[in-house]
Write a protein that binds this DNA or RNA. Structure first.
Lengths: 215, 215
DNA sequence: TAGATTGTTAATCGATTAACAATC
DNA sequence: TAGATTGTTAATCGATTAACAATC
């Protein structure tokens, strides 16, 4: 259908934002938009929007612009939101639980099918309609349910072993909240890192150096 | 001391990772490292490491390399980890609470000094040794305590008003977990976005398009 | 001194922006 | 048809990598 190789990471990371903005426009009953108008709303260049979209196909019409709903649906298809990838959560501490309860997985291309933790004390506790299972049940579960994605909310030091196990059990991708650097040892595995402390440190840098920056 | 203007965002975002790796090395009692060795451990080019560091100064020694502890301390100083910026949390729902309990703010350049929520039912509940205050107390608190950073863990629709209030109260920067796009309306404010759903969608894209990618 | 490795300049690569012909 | 706006090619800009002289 479209050449999904060679698409640069920069472009891919902008897709969710386009998707969000188009969703907002749709809510406001905007049916049609030009790259120019959209660029003003999103504060990016119209060139960039047209370049980005044309990586995947020609979704607009000369002299008219883009149909908002059609374009949003195209982007949903490109991302594969309807694919509902099977995801499991590893680590049901504060962060793991919060992510589970905070996020609407189904709206973000996934379906949460299992939650695992090594703490016997919280076994069977229900979170988002799923019981927490002990980590000992992980292997059997994976053999049966074949999850695509593992969400890693465990400490750095226990991560390596779990990741190795999960890869052996055919998990293809990780949403990694730990500080364990998966790609250093497993370089053909898909990883999306969320390093909260890196993000906070970046913010701290920017605040601490703002005086020098104002020019 | 160093020209902190003109430092590109790409470089700044790599600083926390250098800081982490150097910390790890220190734990392993490594006292000295060359850009070459570090580049192999971090899987980046030695050129990049030397370029990045030289944005801030010449921290190495020809023929020898870098002193691990000294370099780590320099990076801590560049980021301003010891500055302990005053931070407040807005929104003590699942995510806000989890972030508060999960993160060691003091190790990441901040000090959490207040937690606010509009839910009267959870008022005075203690989280990380701080009581949750009702949002009505925000103004008085800010006038007195002058926080630098606000952590935004509230829904998109209530964000705009709160952000405006906080900016009026002299908050300089936001760690934004909401989908409200702060910079669209306030473009001189420092913002670090953490869009969990964008991150998950990016992962979904990569999984759904992995077959085409393998070449 | 000779060897190693930095700091820094130059070359390359990729991403963004501008321009414009195609076309609705 | 004339006007608008896309899709796409070309130009620019910035970031990464390579090379090497300086120097410990």
């Amino acid at each position: 259908m479209y050449k999904s190789n060679n698409i640069s990471n920069s472009v891919i990371r902008r897709l969710p934002r386009y998707y969000r903005f188009l969703g907002q426009l749709l809510k406001q009953n905007v049916t049609k938009i030009s790259s120019r108008e959209l660029s003003e709303r999103m504060r990016v260049t119209a060139s960039q929007i047209r370049q980005d979209l044309n990586c995947f196909g020609g979704f607009g019409q000369q002299g008219y612009g883009y149909n908002v709903e059609a374009l949003r649906d195209e982007i949903a298809k490109i991302i594969g939101i309807d694919k509902q990838l099977k995801a499991i959560l590893i680590g049901a501490g504060n962060l793991g639980r919060a992510i589970t309860m905070h996020l609407d997985f189904e709206k973000n291309g996934c379906k949460l099918i299992g939650i695992f933790d090594n703490n016997l004390a919280i076994e069977n506790l229900q979170i988002a309609n799923l019981p927490i299972s002990h980590i000992n049940n992980l292997k059997n579960f994976c053999l049966k349910e074949k999850p695509d994605i593992a969400i890693l909310c465990i400490p750095r030091d226990s991560a390596k072993e779990i990741v190795q196990n999960l890869i052996d059990l055919n998990v293809k991708a990780f949403w990694n909240f730990s500080h364990y650097d998966i790609n250093l040892e497993f370089d053909d595995i898909i990883v999306e890192n969320v390093h909260l402390s890196d993000s906070l440190l970046t913010l701290a840098y920017n605040v601490n150096n703002q005086i020098d920056r104002q020019d």
